[in-house]
Simulated scan of single mutants.
Amino acid sequence: MVAQLIKNKTNLYDTDYNLWILETVKKLEIRDFNSVDWENLIEEVLDLSKRDKRKLQNLLKRLCEHLLKLKYWEWEIERNKKHWRGEITNFRQQIQYQLEDSPSLKPYLAEIYSQCYGDSRKIASQKSGLPLNTFPESPIAPLEQILDENWLP
Rank of each mutant, 00 (worst) to 15 (best):
L63E: 03
V2D: 10
L70F: 11
G118Q: 10
E149M: 07
L63H: 02
L46W: 10
G86H: 04
Q4D: 04
E44Y: 02
K50C: 03
L19N: 02
H66G: 02
V36K: 06
K53A: 10
R51W: 03
K7M: 09
R51V: 13
E74S: 11
F91N: 11
S104L: 09
S128A: 09
I77P: 00
L143R: 03
G129L: 05
E65L: 13
P139W: 02
P107T: 11
I88E: 06
K53G: 07
K69M: 11
V25H: 06
N8W: 03
N90Y: 12
E76Y: 15
P139F: 00
C116A: 11
L59W: 05
L105T: 10
D119C: 02
R62W: 08
D47Y: 13
Q145A: 00
E76I: 11
Y72N: 01
S49C: 08
T89S: 08
W20L: 12
K55D: 14
Q98F: 10
N80Q: 10
Y72G: 00
I6G: 13
E149G: 04
Y72L: 01
L68E: 00
E44I: 04
W20N: 09
G118E: 10
D148V: 02
R79Y: 13
K50G: 07
I140K: 05
K53Y: 06
L109G: 06
D16K: 01
L46A: 12
L143C: 01
D16V: 03
L46V: 09
N150H: 14
K7W: 05
R92H: 09
C64M: 14
L132H: 10
K82A: 14
V25C: 08
Y13D: 07
E65G: 02
Q4V: 02
L22C: 08
S125G: 08
L67P: 00
L59T: 04
V2A: 10
D14A: 06
A124W: 02
K26L: 15
T15V: 15
R121F: 05
T24M: 07
P103H: 04
S128Q: 04
P103K: 01
Y17W: 12
C64Y: 13
N150T: 15
V45D: 07
S120A: 13
T10M: 15
L105K: 09
L152R: 08
W20V: 12
P153I: 12
R51H: 10
E137R: 15
K106M: 10
L56Y: 03
R85D: 15
E87S: 07
L41T: 13
L152Y: 12
D52G: 00
W84P: 00
L60G: 04
L105G: 01
K27M: 10
Q115V: 06
T89R: 05
T89I: 04
S102E: 04
Q93F: 15
P136S: 08
Q57P: 01
S125M: 05
W20Q: 11
T89G: 02
S120P: 03
R62S: 13
I30N: 13
P131E: 02
D52P: 00
Q96G: 00
L28M: 09
Q126M: 14
K7P: 01
E78I: 07
Q4I: 01
L67H: 08
W151K: 13
